[in-house]
Structures are given as structure tokens and as C-alpha cells.
Write a protein that binds this DNA or RNA. Sequence first.
DNA 1: CGGCGCACTTGATATTTGTCAAGCCAGCAA
DNA 2: TTGCTGGCTTGACAAATATCAAGTGCGCCG
Lengths: 232, 232
Amino acid sequence: MPELHYPEIRALGLFSDMADAHFQSLMRGAYVQNFPPQIELIAEGEPSDFLHVVLSGSVDLFSTWNGRDTSLATVRPISTFILAATIRNAPYLMSARTLEKSRIVLIPSQDVRAIFDVDGIFARAIVTELARCYRAVIKSQKDLKLRTSLERLANYLLRQQKRAGGGASFELDVEKRRLASVLGMTPENLSRAFKGLRPYGVAVEGTRISIGDQADLERFARPNPLIDDFST
Amino acid sequence: MPELHYPEIRALGLFSDMADAHFQSLMRGAYVQNFPPQIELIAEGEPSDFLHVVLSGSVDLFSTWNGRDTSLATVRPISTFILAATIRNAPYLMSARTLEKSRIVLIPSQDVRAIFDVDGIFARAIVTELARCYRAVIKSQKDLKLRTSLERLANYLLRQQKRAGGGASFELDVEKRRLASVLGMTPENLSRAFKGLRPYGVAVEGTRISIGDQADLERFARPNPLIDDFST
DNA sequence: CGGCGCACTTGATATTTGTCAAGCCAGCAA
DNA sequence: TTGCTGGCTTGACAAATATCAAGTGCGCCG
């Protein structure tokens, strides 16, 4: 892999503190690849041969069963995915596909496990990352089980607004049909849910969302850090 | 804490390989407590002061939002809960209450973090445990998003049957209303779902379930290791 | 410029799920 | 025994959600 990318990978919390020799050794076996949009990177059920790091672009994690499918998460730069499968040397639970042109680092899983076994600092960094991911899924589980689809959408918009800088107007950065899947509903229902939020001051124009009355929307959505704050 | 309990705790994967001095040091600060049924052990949002280990009995992990509540998991001996919150030194995401008379070990979170920082073997054991938990939640997420309530119940019964030894007839070991909550439905709907499985040979008598035609039920449920096998 | 193609929207309808109220039944205490 | 309690079930109804079938609007390409 070109050393050019070392610094940005090294900057990830997962790799930032480990011994340099170990980092170099991981990188030696890794390689970078550019993928066009809509390429399936991994399929659920396959053995976890590589830990993936998204350098640019974005990746959809999804799953399929009995003819249905659902989006579980979106991975954005710079972060890793399928860490848990790599560590447990177990099959992938989710499939992954690029949403746009993406540059992705592939690190052989056996290298990751080997370094994990000898580098306590790396092991601890993995713990921190896994704990973060675990808590994120629990939050998402609570979102799904405790809220109606309208409430999920309202809270999603508030989160996205925050991510986009907090202004009254912002862009959705996912396709609506994917958003519907992430929120656990059909595209048709997402359309209706947007209309359902109109009484709370939400206006939609294509991918642009405007929140007319912040307080009103929040009164309806009741955002909660134990569900919506993905930083803890 | 009475040394009496040391061996059973030590036998947990989480603690089995760590340095003895570190284990002793963890145990010195820990204590065992007996709780009656229906006692709330922790409340979501509280700081994570203790890592909990269930020695006997069982514990319900649940969450509340806006007047609704849902069961997320049941913890059975011998295992730990809220490991992720302890590691991240973050607030609990779930509340916990005893379902029956239970004996529980409380290990101060700061001790766990301190040992975690100096014992690489312990850190690696935590990684393995967290990765397992993480994958379990992902599976549960897929179950919720990809299956109808009838399919969820059918697959739950097949899993429970396996846990109970695999016989055609077995006991439910949770209250039906809790089961309903775990499966993401109302108790009324669970009743109807049981009736809905009658055509596939499922008979219910109180807490006893009989599966008349294994193949028939499996043909309907379509169990999948990437959702239903909690061992990987 | 015209006409696809594709995502999204809309309306009508069916299905699923939740809610409310009542009844059933086993377990238990007086 | 009697009467109560609490969990479970049932039925009638309401609400939420999915499905199916058009329709709309926009970008893209010939």
C-alpha cells in the first residue's frame, strides 16, 4: 500500500497509539483499492478475510433474509467496518456495498488478529471501538422498538441537522429509499411520514429539509441522548 | 467478597486467563449481593459504577422512553452485563431488574478499567466478549427488521427448543408478556401469533410448547445461523 | 429538443399491529 | 370454600403500516 495513506489511517483512534513496528506490519500486508458505486464489497456469510477502512466515499451495510433486505448502517470516512467479525474470526453478519466511488483499505484479518495478540495497546483500542459500536447498535435497537416511524424520522432529522451544522435548513445525504430502509419503513411510508411532520414545521424540497420551528419539532420528537447521541 | 465464589467467576471467559494478582485485586473490591425478584438494579442514564456478574437467578435488561418500555435481553448465569458502559465510563443505556431471586457480583467499574489498562490478557478477553455481544445485537436487529412477528416467534421457539435440549416439547422460561416485549409485540398479539403458528403444528399449553411437525415449522420459520445462532 | 429512466409521490386498498374492554382461569390467602 | 389477584386470552375496533398501481418531476442522453 502506498505510504501516502499511512497518516490518515494512523490518525484513526484504532491505530493511533499502537507500536510503530506493529502498525507498519499491518500496513505491509494491506492494500488500497478504488471501487465504483454500487459494488458489493462483501456478502454476509462469507469468512471475514479483511478488516475494511473507508478512506473516501461511503459504504452501505445491509442484510438480506428470505427475499427481504434492510440497511443497517452507513459507513463514512474515516472509519472501519466489520471489526467484530475480524476479531472473532467469524462470518460477516452483514453485506457491504459502495454507495458512491470509494477508496477502501483492506487489511488481512489474520494480520489484525496476530497484532491484536501481541500489542496490548492495540487490543485496548479495539475494545474502545467495539464498545462504541455496541452502544450504537443498542441505541438503534431502542429507536426501533420504542418509537413509531414518525418519531424515528423526526429524531433522525434532528440528528442529521446537528451533523450538518445545526442550521434550520440542511441536506439529506442519503437516498430517501435507503433512509426508509434504515428507519425500518417502506419508501412510500417515508413520503407520508414527511408529510406527517409538516404540522411540526418540517418542509421538504427534494433532498433539502427545513425546520420551521425547532422547539415544536423537538417537543414532538423528544430526542434523548441515551438513544440519539452517538458520541457516547 | 467470600472467596467461595471466586472459582465460578474465574471460570468465565472474561476472567479465566488474566494474571492471578489482577483477578485477586478485582475481587477484593467486589461484593456479592442477594436480591429479591423485581428489584431494579440499575437505571438507564446513571453512571456505570459497577460491572455486574449474575451468579444465579436472572436479570431483565430493558429500556424506557416517552412512557413506553421494551425488554432488550435476559441475562442468565453465569455472565456479565453492561460491560460496554463500564469500559467507556459512560452512562448505562439500559435499566436492569431481577426477574427472580438472584445473586449478583458487583465489581467497581474503575477497578475494571484500571486492570484493563495494565493487563493485556484481560483486555483481549474483553474484546472477545464485546465482539460476541455486538454480534448478538446485530442478529437481533436483523431479526426485528427482516421478519414479521409471526416469523420472529417461530424462530424464537426453534431457538428455545434447541436450548432446552431439542425435544418436541419444552418449556418457555420467560413470562409471555416479557417474551412479547422481547419479540417487539404486545401480549395480545403474542397470543394471536401462537394461534397463527397452529397450522404449522405448534401447540401451546400454559408455558409448555409442543412442536408437532419440526420440518413444517422450520419450513415456515427459515432459521438462519446469521440471525439465530448466538454462539458465533 | 424530445423522450426515456428512475426516484419519488400519491391514492386506494389490504394487512398487520395496537388498543380497549371483557372474560377466563390458576394460584393463593382468608 | 370463597373471593381476590394477576397473567393470559378473546373479540371488536382503531391505528399504523405495507402493498399495488398510477402518476409526477427531474436529470440525462441520444
